[in-house]
Simulated scan of single mutants.
Amino acid sequence: MKTNNVWFVTGASQGLGLILVRELLARGYAVAATSRHLPELQQAVPPEPGRFLPLHMDLRDEASVQQALDTTVRQLGGLDVVVNNAGYGQLGALEELSAAEVQRNFEVNVFGLVHVLRHATPYLRAQGHGQVFNVSSVGGFTGDFPGWGVYCATKFAVDGLTESYAAEVRAFGIRATTVKPGYFRTGFLSAESLGRPSAPLGAYQAVRESQAQHDALSGQQPGDPAKAAAVIIEASEAAEQPLHLFLGPDAYRMAARKIEAVQHDLQQWELAATATNFALAE
C-alpha cells in the first residue's frame, strides 16, 4: 500500500513545480500546491476538492507557511511528501550586489525552505513516515559559475541542511533528498525570474560573459522538465530513496569535474594536511 499519497509542492505556478503537480495529479496523487501568485496557479490547474488544493503562501512569512501546511492536512487528510521547489536565481558578482539583494535570495531559497521543514516535520514524525525533496541545483555542489556566487551559496546551504536533516529524521521513518538539476527548459533564466545586480561593474568581464551566455541559453536549455518531474516521482516510489539526486547529463558532467578537482587537491596536500595532529607522547 502506498503511503505517499498526499504531496505538498511549493513554487507551483510555473516551471518544474507546475509540471510536477500536473504529473502527480495524472498519476492519482492528491496534491497541495503553493504560490505567491494564487490566481496564476488556479488558472493553470483548477481546484478539485479532495484531489488538488491550490494555496497562497509567502515563504518569507512563517505564519503563512504554517497555515498552508495546516490547511493541507485538514482538507486533504494528511501529508506524505514535501517538495521544496520554490526559489529564484540571483546573478551578480558579490561586489555588485546590495545587502538587500543577498538577504532576499537567502530568505526565499534557504529560510523559506527552513520554515516549511520546521512546520512539516512534526506531521511526518508523528505518523512515522514521510519524504522530503529539497530542490537545490548542480550549483549547490559546484560553485564554478562567475556571477552566481550568492545563488550557489543558497543552494550549498540547502545541500548541507538536507544532509543533516536526513540524519536527524531517519529514525522517524522520514527520508530526505537534495535534488540537483542541471539546465532544464523552464523560465528560471527569463528576465522576469532572474535577479540581476543593481549596480553592475565593468571590471567583472567574466560575470558579464556568464550573463550573456545564460541570456542566450534561456528557452534553449537541453533538459526536459517533464522528464525531471518523472524522475522525482520515481525516486519517491523507490525502495531506497537517494540522498543526492543529480538531474541531467550536464549535472553529471559538472559533478564529475568537481569530484575530480577535490580528489586532486586531497592527493596534492595529503602529506602536509594530515600531519596536523598533536604529536603522540613517547
Rank of each mutant, 00 (worst) to 15 (best):
K2I: 06
N5W: 02
G11V: 06
A12M: 04
S13G: 14
S13R: 09
Q14Y: 07
L16K: 01
G17R: 00
I19R: 11
L25T: 01
A26C: 11
V31W: 00
A32E: 00
S35R: 10
L38A: 05
E40Y: 03
L41E: 11
Q42I: 02
V45R: 00
P46S: 04
P46C: 03
E48V: 02
R51Y: 02
F52W: 01
M57S: 10
M57N: 05
L59P: 03
R60N: 14
D61H: 06
D61G: 07
Q67H: 10
L69S: 02
D70H: 05
T71Y: 01
T71M: 11
D80G: 10
V81I: 10
V82P: 03
V83E: 04
V83L: 04
N84I: 04
N85D: 08
G89L: 04
Q90D: 08
G92D: 01
E96P: 02
E96I: 08
S98N: 10
A100T: 10
A100I: 10
E101L: 11
E101G: 03
V102L: 15
Q103D: 07
E107S: 09
V108W: 00
V110D: 03
G112R: 04
L113K: 07
V116E: 02
V116M: 11
L117H: 03
L117T: 00
L117Q: 04
R118F: 11
H119E: 03
A120P: 00
T121W: 13
H129L: 08
H129A: 13
G130Y: 00
G130D: 02
Q131P: 01
Q131S: 08
V132G: 12
G139I: 02
G140P: 05
F145R: 06
W148R: 07
V150S: 04
Y151C: 06
C152R: 04
C152N: 10
A153F: 12
F156N: 01
A157E: 04
A157L: 07
A157R: 00
A157G: 09
T162H: 05
T162Y: 00
E163G: 03
S164D: 10
R170M: 09
R170K: 15
A171N: 11
G173P: 12
V179K: 08
K180E: 15
P181M: 11
P181C: 13
E192F: 11
L194M: 15
G195T: 08
A199D: 14
L201C: 14
L201R: 15
A206D: 13
V207I: 08
E209V: 01
S210W: 03
D215P: 05
A216P: 06
S218M: 13
Q220G: 07
Q220F: 13
Q220V: 12
G223D: 15
D224K: 11
P225K: 07
P225V: 12
K227P: 04
A229T: 01
I233W: 02
S236Y: 00
E237Q: 14
E237A: 06
A238D: 06
A239G: 12
E240Q: 11
E240L: 08
Q241P: 13
L245G: 08
L247M: 12
G248E: 09
Y252M: 15
M254N: 08
A256H: 13
R257F: 13
K258L: 09
I259K: 04
E260N: 09
A261W: 05
A261G: 09
A261S: 08
A261C: 02
Q263P: 03
D265P: 11
Q268R: 15
L271S: 13
L271Y: 13
A275R: 15
N277S: 13
F278I: 06
A279Q: 14
E282T: 07
